[in-house]
Design a protein around this nucleic acid. Structure first.
Lengths: 208, 208
DNA sequence: ACCTGAACACCGTTCAAGT
DNA sequence: ACCTGAACACCGTTCAAGT
């Protein structure tokens, strides 16, 4: 029955794996103890309580999102690459990202990306308060889009579906638009299109 | 001890009030029963169980978000007014909106707004797939921004704070930018600025 | 320093019984 | 048709006791 002494790291690892696979609701202290083959109360010795266990998982996730390396020739292209990188990272950890969001740490998670954006906006020639606005607008745009997209994926069958509302009868004067809106959106395309449009408007804007 | 017979509507009202004030975690079946002065089990007769009670609250919220009346002279102005209206509505029900989001119904909640956006984009001269893209990009932008903003508000003291990262030592070549980023963002200003910039880029873009 | 089982207060839910 | 209390299985957490 002897087993290596339990470590905090083991607890976190098992908990993270549980959350990754089945979401935070599936993480019960008793279930986790069963997974680890220890008494429930041992876990408390290592991580305090459930709340601080979740905090630790969130903290881990925030750290993991730290690396952002923009690529591309122009500032606009490099900004777009930041968007692309963030999208990929986010989509790999849906439950953990949701937990970061619930805890109000979404912004902190994106600070490294913000630094990258500052650099690019600066390279594009923006300065001062105008540069700050551009950085924040793009940051909000990227993060916001990804939150909406995640929601859409997890979403149950929608009723009424977008399609039901946009059949030709509702918009008789533009069947192509009705058709486009009744098809599911391609999120990646829409994402890149949106970031590109916003970036263009923000970088092009001259001083007033 | 006689009291009017409990109704489903009463249960929903009491539950909604509880959630509005203290969030969904504060809604326990036993606590709700105590508020209503009935046995816990009566509630089950009226609403099934906790899950479907929450579903009903969410459904209510989605319905309440139905009315959108754009105002303004130009399509761009009217789109901005839609954004403004949505922002106000959302901010009045933070907990309920979070629940809508958790249930993956954010999109459905915004269908009326989508219809309004279609109308405006159409008035601005966009047609077909291009119009559909513009509508969706703006919709994602608005919804996403509001989700991020809500997160920021609920957020605990951030460490490191934005300010810590953007002190003059970090960005020595643009003190005005460092200063701007170390001040808290003004969300309303940033929101309107972002929507305006994106709308401008999307409406101005000619066919290719 | 680390682990354990027993116990506590709290959940949501079911059910048989009442009127 | 509507309400009730008792009971069940499940939580997170504490604590005194072990090694």
């Amino acid at each position: 029955m002897a087993r290596n002494p339990l470590t905090r790291e083991e607890v976190l690892e098992a908990a993270a794996s549980l959350v990754r696979r089945h979401g935070p609701a599936a993480l019960t202290m008793r279930g986790l103890a069963a997974d680890l083959g220890t008494a429930v109360t041992s876990i408390y010795w290592h991580v305090g309580n459930r709340e601080s266990l979740l905090d630790a998982l969130v903290e881990r996730t925030v750290q993991e999102m730290g690396a952002v390396r923009p690529v591309g020739r122009t500032p606009a292209a490099r900004i777009l690459s930041v968007a692309r990188i963030l999208r990929r990272e986010l989509r790999g950890r849906p439950h953990l990202i949701a937990m970061v969001h619930e805890r109000g740490l979404t912004e902190r998670m994106f600070l490294p990306a913000q630094q990258a954006l500052v650099h690019e906006v600066h390279a594009a020639g923006l300065r001062g308060a105008r540069a700050a606005d551009a950085v924040r607008a793009i940051q909000f745009q990227i993060v916001g889009f990804l939150l909406v997209e995640r929601n859409r994926e997890r979403s149950p069958a929608q009723s009424p579906a977008e399609g039901d509302l946009w059949d030709p009868a509702t918009a008789p004067d533009d069947p192509a638009l009705a058709r486009a809106l009744s098809r599911p959106a391609d999120p990646e395309r829409l994402f890149l299109l949106s970031v590109r449009a916003l970036t263009e408007a923000l970088l092009a804007r001259p001083g007033d």
